[in-house]
Simulated assay, not measured.
Amino acid sequence: MDRVTRLASQRAVVIFSTNSCCMGHTVTQLFRQLGVNATVVDLDEDPRGKEMEKALARLMGRSPGVPAVFIGGRLVGSTDKVMSLHLSGSLDTMLRNAGALWV
């Protein structure tokens, strides 16, 4: 859990995902379209990826634990939560407050 917390707090937007997670690709594309340079932590490529995925599943209260999106070091949730925030107009505010958007 410490590794997840540390990685999530290093950048304004951090997405934990796996190569096979289509929703991780979807949320990454959304951030790109918004002009946000999100950091993607590919758990398949990390030697401690399985351990982090289990920690994320506990943190999110569901399995699988990916994708898991952090904004400003805080867990936002998965793709459904990010999309809900985007559609309501709240995502832009969160991204500005985290320093991910300057407009």
Rank of each mutant, 00 (worst) to 15 (best):
R3I: 05
V103Y: 15
S78N: 07
D42L: 14
V103A: 14
E45A: 12
L56E: 11
L56P: 09
F16T: 00
S78K: 02
K81E: 10
K50L: 14
A8I: 00
E45C: 08
M1W: 07
K50H: 10
R6S: 11
V76A: 04
L87V: 04
M23H: 11
G99C: 11
L101R: 06
A55Y: 06
V27R: 01
A55C: 08
S63I: 01
L75F: 05
T79S: 04
V69E: 15
V82C: 00
D46A: 15
A38N: 03
S90V: 05
E53F: 06
A8R: 10
V27P: 00
V66I: 15
R11C: 04
D2R: 15
H25D: 10
S17W: 14
V66A: 00
P47A: 11
S20R: 12
C21L: 06
R62I: 01
A57T: 00
R11K: 14
P47Y: 01
A68W: 03
A55Q: 12
G72A: 10
E53N: 12
Q29T: 12
R32K: 12
K81G: 04
D46N: 14
N37T: 00
T79E: 10
G77L: 04
K54L: 13
L87K: 04
R6F: 01
Q29F: 13
G99V: 06
V76Y: 12
G35M: 04
R74E: 14
M23F: 13
L43M: 11
K50T: 13
C21G: 03
L56C: 05
V103I: 09
V13E: 10
R74V: 01
Q10F: 04
R58V: 12
L87Q: 15
I71N: 05
R6A: 05
D92S: 11
L101S: 08
P67Y: 04
D2A: 14
G89V: 09
S63G: 10
L43P: 05
D2W: 14
T93L: 15
L87C: 11
T39C: 12
G89W: 10
G65N: 08
V40P: 09
V40T: 13
V27D: 01
F31E: 07
R96A: 06
T39S: 09
G35C: 02
R32F: 13
R11G: 00
E53P: 05
P47N: 03
G61D: 00
K81I: 04
N37I: 02
G72V: 03
A98F: 14
G77K: 08
L30K: 13
T28R: 12
G65S: 06
V66R: 01
L30H: 09
T39A: 13
V36R: 03
V69T: 02
S78G: 15
R58T: 05
G99S: 11
L85Y: 07
T39W: 15
G49K: 02
L56H: 06
T93S: 10
T79K: 09
M83P: 03
R62F: 06
S84M: 14
A68L: 00
S63E: 08
A12Y: 08
Q33L: 12
L101E: 14
A38F: 13
V82L: 03
W102T: 02
F31P: 05
E45R: 13
G99H: 08
A98Y: 08
C22Q: 15
Q29Y: 12
L59T: 07
L101Q: 10
L59V: 00
E51Q: 10
E45G: 03
G35Y: 06
G99T: 06
